[in-house]
Design a binder for these strands. Structure first.
Length: 670
DNA sequence: TGAGCTTCATTTTTT
DNA sequence: ATGAAGCTCA
C-alpha cells in the first residue's frame, strides 16, 4: 500500500527534528519502519547508525520484524531496535569502567526492590504496606526526575520527605553493595553519565546518528533527557506520539514532553497523521467528539474512508453477572451470524478484577478466551527460584538471591543460622556469601547449621567456577540437577500434577537459556550474565507461538489494549466511578480517564458495544452506578441505546418504591 | 507440614 | 462479600 501525503512527508523529512502526531490507527508503525528503510536506502545512513526506541519488548520485536521485511537482513545489519531500558543497559555495559560497577551485576525487578525496601524500613515503619508503597513510588519519581539522594535530602521540606530521602540514600548504598541496579537506574545512570562526560556523550552521539522514538507521549523526564543527550546539537531524530493516548501519567509519563519539544528544538517540524485506516466513520466520529472535551495542545481531526458503519450500541444490564452473560450471548450469536472467529472479539475493562465474571461466563459457555495480564510466567515461584539461582551464579554479592536460594530446597539452613550469618555480614560490611568464608564465622556457628552452610557455599563456588571456565549450559543443568530441585517440587506441591506443571515451566526456562547461550543465525551467542539480564527485562524470544495463534476471545484492560485493534469491541462497566474511576474523579483527573475511554473506542474496527450494570457489588455492598459521563458525551444520534427504560411503568415504579423502602430499612439498621 | 484461621485489599503496569 | 495470601497451631 502506498503512503498518503502526510505519511510520505513524515518519512522524507530527515534534515532536522521531527514530531509526528499520529492519531489512533493512522499507520505510525508504518511511518517508522518506512523511514528507517528510507534512511538506509536513499540517504546513505548505515543501519548501525540508526536507533529506534520503544517502551515494550513486544513493540520493539514487531518493529524489528517489519523493518527486516522492508529492508532485508543485509541492509538492516546493525540496526538498533530496543526498549528504553535495553538501550540504557547497553550504555551501562559499554561504559561500565567509567561507572565503576563490576561486570555481572544483578538487575533487581519490582519484587526485589520491594523486598530490599521492606528490609530497610522494617524498624521505621513496621511493615506498613501503604508507607512502603509511597516510599517506592517516591524513590522511583526521584530517579525519573534525575534527582540523586543528596539532592533529595537537601530539598526535602516536610519531615516525611526527609525520612524518605534518607531511606533513598540507604537504598542506593545497598544496591551498590549488592552490585545491583533497579529498572529506573537503567535510564537514570546512562543519562547522568552522558550529561557528565563529554567524551562519552560524543561517542554515543556518533554511534547513533539518527534516533526514532515510538509512543513519545509516554516518556518521563529522564527518558526525554536521555533522548536529548543522544541526539545532541545535530538533532536528527523523529518522535512519534499522540497526546490523546497518554494514559500512563500515573507512573511518571510526562505528555508535556510533546510541548517541551517545541521549546527545546525551535526548528521542530510538526506533522499530523489524521487519516485513520482502522475504524468505521461512526466509531471515529464518536471518538473525536469524546476527546474534544479535553483541552488540547495540538488540534487534530481524525477521519476515515472506511464507510460510516453501524451505530454504537449501549446496553444496560441488571448487574455484573448479567452484563457478562449478555456480552457472551452477543458474541455467540454475532459469531454465528457473521461467521467470524472468536479472536475477532475483545472485551475491554478498567480494572483486572472485572475480568473474573467474564471468565466465568465464557468458561461456562465453553468459549475459548485469552486473558492478558495477570500473573505471568515470571511470577511463578519456581521461575523466581531459578532466576535467583542464575543471578547468584553470576553475582555472588546479590544477597537477595542468596536468601532466596540458600534454603530452597531445604538444606537445614534455618533462620537462626541465617540470622548469625547476617549479623556477621553486617558488622564486616561484606555480602552474605563472603561471610560464609569469614574466619570469624566458625566462632559463632557450629554443628548442623554450619555444616549445611559450608556444604552449600562450597557447592556454589564449584558451580560458579564451572560456569565461568567450562560449558555454561552444562553448569546450569548441573545446578538444577544437583540442587534436587525437581524432588523438592514434588514434595512441596499439593499434587503430582502441579509439580509436573511447575517442572515443565523450569524446563521451558532452561530451553530459553540454552537457546540464548548457543545463539542462532540471527542472534549471536550470549554470556550467562547477558542471559540473566535479558530474562529479567522479559526481553526474550517469542513466548508461546501456539498461544498467540489460538482462536480465543480477548480479555484485557483498557491500558493493555493500547496499540491493538479488533473487529468487534465490547467496553464493559461504562459507569461513573468505574470508567471515570472514582479515585480519578476525587483527584479531579477525569481527563486521563477520558483518554482511556478514547483509547478503548479507537480499538474497534467494525462494531463497538458498551455495557453497564445498573447494580454492582462493591466492597461487599450493592451500589447502583450511573451511566458513565463518557457515554453521555458521545453523539447520541450514533448510539443505539437499549434497556434504558424511557418511561417507567407502574410496576417498575412500585419496585423502585420497594427498593427505596428496603434501602431505608438497611440504613436504619446501622 | 498442612488445614483452618485471620487479615487484607479491592486502578491502571512496563521494564 | 469475597477471594487470596499469610500465619498459626496442632
Amino acid at each position: 500500500m502506498k503512503l498518503n501525503p502526510r505519511q510520505d512527508e513524515a518519512v522524507k523529512y530527515i534534515s532536522g527534528p521531527c514530531l509526528v502526531l499520529a492519531g489512533a490507527g493512522s499507520g505510525k508503525t508504518r511511518v517508522i519502519t518506512n523511514k528507517i528503510a528510507y534512511l538506509v536506502q536513499e540517504c546513505e545512513y548505515k543501519a548501525k547508525n540508526i536507533a529506534a526506541v520503544t517502551f515494550t519488548n513486544k513493540a520493539a520485536r514487531e518493529m524489528r520484524e517489519r523493518v527486516l521485511q522492508t529492508l532485508g537482513k543485509q541492509d538492516a545489519k546493525g540496526l538498533w531496535v530496543s526498549t528504553f531500558h535495553t538501550l540504557g543497559l547497553e550504555i551501562i555495559k559499554k561504559e561500565i569502567k567509567t561507572l565503576g560497577y563490576k561486570t555481572g551485576f544483578s538487575l533487581f525487578d519490582d519484587q526485589d526492590t520491594n523486598q530490599l525496601l521492606a528490609e530497610l524500613t522494617e524498624k521505621e515503619f513496621e511493615r506498613d504496606k501503604d508507607l512502603l508503597n509511597l516510599l517506592k513510588n517516591q524513590i522511583s519519581n526521584w530517579k525519573n526526575e534525575l534527582i540523586l539522594p543528596e539532592r533529595a535530602i537537601r530539598e526535602a521540606r516536610e519531615p516525611q520527605k526527609a525520612q524518605f530521602a534518607q531511606l533513598y540514600a540507604r537504598y542506593q548504598v545497598q544496591l551498590r553493595a549488592y552490585n545491583a541496579l533497579d529498572f529506573d537506574d537503567l535510564i537514570m545512570i546512562p543519562t547522568l553519565l552522558l550529561a557528565q562526560f563529554n567524551e562519552v556523550r560524543e561517542r554515543w552521539q556518533s554511534r547513533f546518528r539518527y534516533l526514532l522514538v515510538d509512543e513519545y507521549q509516554d516518556t518521563n523526564t529522564s527518558q526525554y533527557e536521555l533522548v536529548k543527550l543522544l541526539v545532541g546539537e545535530r538533532a536528527r531524530f523523529t518522535v512519534v506520539g499522540d497526546d490523546d493516548q497518554s494514559i500512563y501519567s500515573w507512573r511518571g509519563a510526562k505528555p508535556q514532553n510533546l510541548v517541551l519539544l517545541k521549546k527545546d528544538f525551535p526548528g521542530l517540524r510538526l506533522i499530523k497523521l489524521e487519516q485513520n485506516y482502522r475504524s468505521s466513520g461512526r466509531i471515529l466520529k464518536a471518538a473525536n467528539i469524546l476527546i474534544a472535551n479535553n483541552p488540547h495542545e495540538f488540534e487534530k481531526q481524525l477521519f476515515s474512508e472506511l464507510g460510516y458503519g453501524d451505530p454504537l450500541r449501549v446496553i444496560a444490564t441488571k448487574d455484573e453477572e448479567h452484563e457478562a452473560e449478555r456480552v457472551v450471548a452477543e458474541i455467540i450469536s454475532h459469531k454465528f451470524m457473521q461467521r467470524t472467529s472468536f479472536k475477532d472479539y475483545a472485551i475491554l475493562y478498567r480494572g483486572n478484577h472485572q475480568a473474573r465474571v467474564f471468565e466465568k461466563a465464557l468458561m461456562s459457555n465453553r468459549i475459548p478466551y485469552k486473558l492478558s495480564g495477570g500473573m505471568s510466567f515470571f511470577g511463578r515461584a519456581e521461575i523466581k527460584d531459578m532466576m535467583a539461582y542464575l543471578r547468584f551464579l553470576v553475582n555472588q554479592e546479590d544477597d537477595n538471591a542468596f536468601i532466596r536460594i540458600v534454603n530452597t530446597p531445604k538444606r537445614d539452613i534455618g533462620p537462626v543460622t541465617l540470622e548469625k550469618l547476617g549479623t556477621l555480614a553486617n558488622e564486616k560490611h561484606i555480602s552474605l556469601f563472603e561471610a560464609c568464608f569469614d574466619t570469624e564465622l566458625p566462632n559463632r556457628l557450629h554443628g548442623r547449621g554450619m555444616n549445611a552452610l559450608m556444604g552449600f557455599a562450597r557447592w556454589v563456588v564449584e558451580l560458579a567456577d564451572r560456569a565461568i571456565r567450562g560449558d555454561t549450559l552444562e553448569a546450569v543443568r548441573d545446578m538444577v540437577r544437583e540442587s534436587n530441585y525437581e524432588a523438592y517440587l514434588y514434595e512441596s506441591s499439593t499434587s503430582a500434577k502441579a509439580a509436573e506443571m511447575r517442572m515443565k515451566n523450569v524446563s521451558e526456562l532452561y530451553r530459553w537459556i540454552s537457546e540464548m547461550l548457543s545463539g542462532d543465525e540471527d542472534n549471536p551467542p550470549m554470556t550467562l550474565p547477558e542471559v540473566v539480564t535479558k530474562l529479567t527485562l522479559r526481553d526474550m524470544l517469542e513466548r508461546n507461538e501456539e498461544e498467540d495463534e489460538a482462536d480465543a476471545v480477548q480479555l484485557l484492560t483498557l491500558h493493555a489494549s493500547k496499540g491493538l485493534e479488533y473487529p468487534h469491541v465490547f467496553m464493559v462497566g461504562m459507569e461513573e466511578g468505574l470508567l471515570p474511576h472514582q479515585t480519578s474523579i476525587d483527584e479531579d483527573n477525569v481527563e486521563e480517564e477520558r483518554r482511556l475511554a478514547y483509547v478503548g473506542i479507537t480499538r474497534a474496527q467494525q462494531t463497538l458495544t458498551m455495557t453497564y450494570a445498573k447494580s454492582r457489588r462493591q466492597f461487599g455492598e450493592m451500589i447502583t452506578p450511573e451511566l458513565s459521563r463518557f457515554v453521555e458525551e458521545l453523539p447520541q444520534d450514533d448510539l443505539a441505546i437499549e434497556g434504558k427504560a424511557p418511561v417507567k411503568t407502574q410496576e417498575q415504579r412500585m419496585q423502585d418504591g420497594q427498593s427505596k423502602v428496603a434501602g431505608l430499612r438497611a440504613m436504619l439498621k446501622r
